[in-house]
Design a protein around this nucleic acid. Structure first.
Length: 264
DNA sequence: CCCTCTGTTGGATT
DNA sequence: CAATCCAACAGAGG
């Protein structure tokens, strides 16, 4: 479930719960992936919570960082296994601020998420392209980074080294909003299409963020009702023209699109 | 009840 | 490049 909006919400929550707090303990729970040197975080202060694409970065006083990725099913919540036992608690972070302790846990049923403590986050960030919400990222820049060649547009937009933060759902929603088929060869797109794709991705992200923001993480896709324009909609009618939404697979991942609004 | 299928992440392999 | 498998599980459907 986590794509950029959910990671951004996780960032805000982590900042609210632990900004300026000291790391008192950091430990793996059953099945948890805690890598790097967790002991290096002990006693350090969480100076700032940042997000780059789908990577969470907790900057530690002293220069290191606490990194976290949510994988497919991760979320951060307050409460630990002793105070508030819940299934699938994987990593436990205990912080102290103003004399008050708080326990934060990474909850992750499928265990594809992780936490790591690294001495310098720079090499991790260097592997990622500009964040999708970075104001410096514009249409021409996106075209330069993701355009050219015969590879499908969707493959390029999902490549975190080209642009960071776009997931399968976001890419498909952006393609629909831009009127572009997700399997269009990346080199065949005119400049105006890149502008529309970027605007479409940001509109989808803003819409999802607004709908999900709150005290708790509540994923838009949870609750039995599909809130997206095309993702998971086949063969429902296209919201714009009524043509049945189509489904196809690329690299094992599903694509959804309107054959009439998004011709190849 | 038991299969079988699907998948929001990313990485390795062919 | 791109297709495939994998990680480990929940939930849906037959």
């Amino acid at each position: 479930m986590p794509e950029l909006p959910e990671v951004e919400i996780a960032r805000r929550l982590l900042a609210r719960w632990s900004h300026g707090a000291e790391v008192v303990a950091l430990e793996p729970l059953t099945g948890g992936r805690l890598e790097g040197d967790p002991a290096a975080a002990l006693g350090a202060t969480l100076a700032r919570w940042d997000r780059h694409g789908k990577l969470l970065i907790g900057h530690l006083s002293g220069g290191g960082a606490l990194l976290s990725h949510l994988g497919m099913t991760g979320k951060w919540a307050r409460g630990g296994p002793h105070l508030d036992p819940r299934p699938h608690q994987r990593v436990l972070l205990t912080v102290e601020r103003g004399g008050e302790r708080a326990q934060l846990t990474l909850i992750d049923p499928r265990r594809l998420g992780w936490v790591a403590v690294v001495p310098d986050p720079a090499p991790w960030l260097a592997r990622l392209g500009p964040d999708a919400l970075d104001p410096a990222l514009d249409g021409p820049t996106l075209a330069r980074r993701a355009g050219g060649g015969a590879a499908p547009l969707k493959t390029r937009l999902l490549d975190q080294a080209r642009v960071a933060g776009l997931g399968n759902i976001c890419v498909l929603e952006a393609c629909f909003r831009a009127g572009v088929h997700p399997h269009t060869p990346a080199g065949a797109l005119p400049p105006a299409a890149w502008e529309r794709l970027l605007a479409g991705a940001r509109a989808h992200i803003a819409h999802t963020l607004a709908a999900e923001a709150g005290e708790e993480i509540t994923y838009l896709s949870e609750g039995g009702h599909n809130p997206f324009l095309v993702y998971g909609k086949a063969p429902a009618p296209c919201p714009r023209c009524g043509e049945p939404i189509a489904k196809a697979a690329l690299a094992g991942r599903p694509s959804f699109y309107c054959p009439r609004c998004q011709p190849l």
